[in-house]
Design a binder for these strands. Structure first.
Lengths: 331, 331
DNA sequence: CACATGTGTAAAAACGTTTACACAAAATTA
DNA sequence: TAATTTTGTGTAAACGTTTTTACACATGTG
């Protein structure tokens, strides 16, 4: 059995409170007793029970994060950034992978709440307004990332301007001379999916290009989705000249479908997307991409939480909109 | 303030224990009271405080996982697998990113212990035997993944046969006619790094090829490492015909260095590596790779923990060695 | 020498649960 | 009908901390 405060106390024939005081170091203890206690702690190899502390202190020293897919580099980096800042402030990070499932996400939220997490970062896939209200009414500081609740109310978030980014990416395609530009995006209830579609639309319109519904694909942000939609497009004889994929996974799936039809990227279909980071030095070869500062997003989200935790007055740090980077190595 | 058990009890004029019993559902309560309580729980929107439960039950219902770099697809997938199984069994996952730093890893272990986690999955970067002993002496079920402690004692682990995998990969290069084959690996205190180097060595020897120390690079598993080592090799005029990179990141870095010298992959230097998964459909183009079943590894690691948690007799499930897949799309 | 002030420590009450124990009332058995 | 068992509930003691309160004692002050 791991030694407890009371074991140290008994061992030294002093009271628990004294031992506690030297551990927490913020109350008066004589140097002599402090030494004794510190020595005993070493000897008995005492280590505080954080659960008991949490109960007493009403703070679990943990932050929850809910992402749709941790195996997506974007969310992995985001989590990494969040985790680092959490750790630096004495918090541990509880990772939840919602798998793009609304019910799962809600379940996780409930679990995190029960676990008394001190803060939550959430890349939501839900649209349910009641659910968002519930989150924001709770006393747990919450920051939304990537995907935002579409509600009137103010809340904390960190993201990029998706509409503009998609616009820029599409403009890039148009500037290169492409006219038949397809777009594949995620579920429109997710703002990142919706706004990217809208950016594409605006670019098409502003450049006087026809918006062809056959070239609009709406699926989800998974590889399979990109694959199936592109495959169908091609099999329906709707080969576009270029494709805007609303995230990296869609692009990967689409490229697989393209190659299966013995077409080449980018020669036959020029593909651009979001968040195909160039870390690998491989992906970016022919995949111009808008890359979000994922790690930064996670860091800032956690900064906001920590700030709110330390400073009760500071309630709504309205919004942080970061600048993404346009990566286009081969041009 | 969130309602507590006692609030429900008072509201109904019954005792806390009765309320607790209906919540936990495994003790006798009359149907009538049960209904009442359930109704009150709904009305007052009660949700149990998991911290208090943890303290009382001596189980935090959390599992800790320590990985060197969550932004590496391999560890992201591993975590994803672990998380899914944890969740299915009512546990949440605490994610720790050691950043390949030994002290950081130890710090995390301490934090997890204090947090009373019920189990630990760890991809260690340490070599310190004392540290491993401490882990294994503790009462917390621990499973090692990827990288293994080099100690006599039995412990749980899930990994692949790295030596054989590296041998196979090298043999593949040799079969393709390459003779001057470089290898870049991580710190040799990590078994995955060491064993991959040894697999390369054995393949070279068994095929009667010269082992040229100039073509052995030892760094770490980060991109920069692959970049610097390959750059130096090339600048020293030691251009190999092919390269075995001990992980994906090393390969990415090396490829960047190769390209900077205006050389092409695979025409000028043929590169193979570990864990460049083909999920993207992009990386694998010219990068034959041994891909570990990362998600599976995480799942099995968690299975072991759950089993040990549920069945006190089952203490040491010796080892699980999984088969990796050889991916070589373009051949 | 009375009195305030300062210092170190102990005792005890939380924090929100679960559960062993006790016990009355109801149901069953002899 | 008496004895026994079953059923439902309440009481109180944990789980391992932190912190408030109180108090004993030393030191300094007029």
């Amino acid at each position: 059995m791991a030694p407890r405060l009371v074991d140290i106390a008994k061992h030294l024939n002093i009271s628990v409170s004294t031992v506690s005081r030297v551990i927490n170091g913020k109350d008066r203890v004589s140097d002599e007793t402090r030494e004794k206690v510190l020595k005993a702690i070493k000897e008995l190899n005492y280590s505080p029970n954080e659960i008991a502390r949490s109960l007493r202190n009403r703070s679990s020293k943990t932050i929850g994060i809910i992402v749709p897919d941790i195996s997506n580099q974007f969310f992995a980096l985001l989590s990494k950034g969040a985790e680092a800042v959490a750790k630096n402030n004495g918090y541990l990070l509880i990772l939840c992978n919602s798998d793009y499932d609304e019910d799962m996400e809600k379940e996780y939220l409930e679990m995190l709440t029960q676990k008394q997490v001190d803060g939550i970062v959430i890349a939501t896939v839900c649209k349910d307004e009641k659910y968002f209200e519930r989150i924001l009414d709770s006393s747990i500081p919450t920051v939304f990332v990537d995907n935002l609740p579409q509600i009137k109310r103010n809340y904390n978030f960190v993201t990029i301007d998706n509409e503009k980014a998609a616009f820029d990416l599409t403009q890039h395609l148009i500037d290169k001379g492409y006219k038949e530009i397809a777009v594949i995006t995620g579920k429109l209830q997710e703002t990142s999916a919706l706004e990217r579609l809208e950016g594409w639309k605006r670019a098409m319109k502003e450049n006087g290009l026809k918006i062809n519904n056959d070239l609009i694909g709406i699926g989800d942000f998974k590889i399979e989705s990109g694959y199936k939609i592109m495959k169908k497009m091609l099999e329906n004889g709707k080969k576009p000249e270029a494709l805007l994929a609303a995230n990296n996974f869609i692009a990967y799936g689409a490229i697989r479908a393209i190659r299966e039809k013995d077409l080449r990227v980018p020669e036959d279909i020029y593909v651009v997307c979001f968040d195909a980071t160039d870390d690998t030095g491989l992906m970016s070869i022919n995949l111009p991409s808008i890359v979000q500062p994922a790690e930064k997003i996670g860091e800032i989200a956690l900064d906001i939480i920590i700030k709110r935790l330390n400073n009760k007055e500071f309630k709504i740090f309205d919004k942080v909109i970061l600048e993404p980077t346009f990566i286009n190595v081969m041009n």
